[in-house]
Design a protein around this nucleic acid. Structure first.
Lengths: 349, 349
DNA sequence: CGGTGTCCATAGAACGGTCTAGTGTTACTT
DNA sequence: AAGTAACACTAGACCGTTCTATGGACACCG
């Protein structure tokens, strides 16, 4: 389809212009064109102008594949995400994260190679990308405890940055948020409001950061002498609701619940309604990964806020560090901070 | 910096294995390796096995850049999205759409080249991608009325599929949902419930589908003799709320409002609360682009449902059609259909 | 035994750039 | 005037594949 006209010269040949066409039109050698294009010393200002004019007249852009082949830089980084499609759509996290990545890539005229996959395909995909020379490096997300990707991808020498605590990252550089500190802040806040029975709905237990948060939650509630309980879910509204129901059905139901993302917290608002509990009087709810979603609900949701956009940008920055062989790329990103809204309050006496 | 071990041979040479290394190890010529890899006739079963073993021992994958350079297929399609980062995060639409795209790409071991950009960069990005040989084709979204991308990208011969009505697509193939029919269905439904004053909060007026929906809305409300009003917003919660407030402040406020996406509809629930109006008794709300979001709120939101995942898949399918030079690729996708939930009901007398 | 296929395998030319090593010209030094 | 340095530009190798043309080996046929 799309019957279209082409610019003069390309149309005539029926193919895209190449560096040779440009060289011919400007009356120089291909080398000169390459030099002119990259602003390197070696051609006079006059010639350069002539070359660039010829290039734009022919609508020529250097073929990236050819450039990569000699130049060694493919101007691309890879990201593979393994979560069910439906869930991905709803989670604001990834899109914001990707936006952050792009904000750094754009400045370097690099692009993101994206793949949404099943978890067991990921090693394969990165192998293909790296060994096939499609990417300069990759970003690894959703790290598991003892993640099989770490040894496998280290083995093939993939330059990568891990999004997660260094303890999960093996030999890779990593950028992480201090989840433990954030959990402590959240629990202390609820304790200060007067809550004595506090629960938490976590993400999948296999995820590295779930474990880190769970450990921190256990430690800090013990330290403060709180009654604590954790239910495991998978970030989805469904499982979040179910976990929440189970917690509320227990004989001594908690007066405050912390959720590992905002979707589950939003879903919990509905569950509270089912139980005839009013938020925050009967039940305080505290979300994680604060997105605009938390401000859309009534009551608005208190949340542990996290600048996901900047986080993505920092991770990408770190990846370029790794690619360029810099040392000491790993570093913590800004810690999530508590944004109190209308869903948390002292418990009813 | 990921100090890592490499597989034997690559470590020794300090670089990735190439087809020559594989050929040498298997004791054949590079051509034979290429033939074996692609399952083409020309090598004996025995040799082939030897070659594949050598390849896997060296961890070799064909370099995509080199393959593209001769083979002409870059196994990549492009997608550039121009919306502010924050908004993208919240809109479930794009992630689901991308998931759908991926579901088709994955089967063909193609990848998606993604860029989040400012609107005025888009032509430039596609030029770069296409003329630089980075993509085999692109998907164009968020079509405007008289979109400048259409002539510009047709001119350079980019194979592309437009997401939107053919009237917006110029010479390009397109895949679209019948928005006009959906608007009619929505309005008829509200009219059948007994609503006589119906309003609509649209997306940006420059968007092609906003215009199509607005025209349909105007036509059908006139036909049914309803009092109709349209307010323009930009899909964001903020502007959605504001538009909703303006509608509700009018002397004869509407008893039902249709929104062009679900974010704005969710935001409107809050606004209704501000005004002391209960949904759906005092005010019916109908969302568009039904995502799980609509089921998370209380009351749940009635919505025009739209299988965005399949839509993405169909568009991608069509793009492959265009790339392969097939005719008659354009076609409508499934029309959105009404999912009545708790936010719509007959108006209070 | 020469002719004709068939099968296996290879040589070598693309593909479209980048980059190094070089050539030729001019200007400046001594 | 010879030497040299700076500059403008080019030839050609090279990156890692694919693909076409071709060659050799072997079997079958008349």
């Amino acid at each position: 389809m799309c019957h279209v006209r082409r610019t003069d010269a390309t149309a005539a040949r029926g193919r895209k212009a190449t560096i040779k066409d440009v060289a011919a039109r400007a009356g120089v050698s291909p080398s000169a064109v390459s030099i002119a294009l990259h602003d390197k010393p070696g051609v006079s200002a006059l010639t350069k102008e002539r070359i660039l004019r010829a290039a734009s007249e022919l609508g020529w852009r250097p073929n990236q594949a050819a450039a990569s082949l000699s130049g060694r830089n493919v101007h691309t980084v890879g990201l593979a995400i393994a979560r069910p499609a439906r869930m991905l759509g709803l989670e604001p996290f990834y899109m914001e994260f990707i936006s952050g990545i792009e904000s750094v890539l754009g400045r370097r005229s690099c692009s993101l190679l994206l793949r949404l996959i099943e978890a067991d395909e990921e090693i394969q995909v990165h192998r293909e990308w790296w060994q096939g020379g499609r990417v300069n490096g990759s970003i690894l997300v959703d790290l598991l405890v003892d993640d099989p990707r770490i040894p496998a991808l280290a083995e093939i020498g993939l330059p990568a940055v891990v999004v997660g605590h260094p303890s999960l990252a093996g030999p890779f550089a990593s950028v992480w948020t201090d989840d433990a500190a954030a959990v402590v802040e959240a629990v202390r806040y609820l304790a200060a409001l007067g809550h004595r029975r506090v629960a938490r709905v976590s993400g999948p237990a296999a995820l590295g950061h779930s474990v880190i948060r769970t450990d921190a939650f256990t430690a800090v509630t013990r330290e403060l002498g709180l009654e604590a309980r954790t239910a495991v879910a998978d970030f989805s509204a469904d499982q979040g609701s179910r976990a929440c129901r189970n917690l509320l059905l227990a004989p001594d139901r908690p007066t405050a619940i912390i959720f590992d993302n905002d979707i589950m917290a939003v879903a919990a608002l509905g569950v509270a309604g089912e139980f005839g509990l009013s938020v925050p009087e009967d039940l305080s709810l505290l979300a994680w990964d604060d997105s605009q979603l938390c401000q859309l609900t009534r009551p608005t949701l208190s949340a542990m806020q996290h600048d996901v956009f900047s986080f993505g940008a920092e991770v990408t920055h770190a990846l370029f560090g790794v690619i360029n062989g810099e040392e000491h790329v790993s570093h913590p990103a800004q810690s999530p901070s508590l944004i109190p809204r209308a869903s948390t309050a002292p418990p009813r006496r």
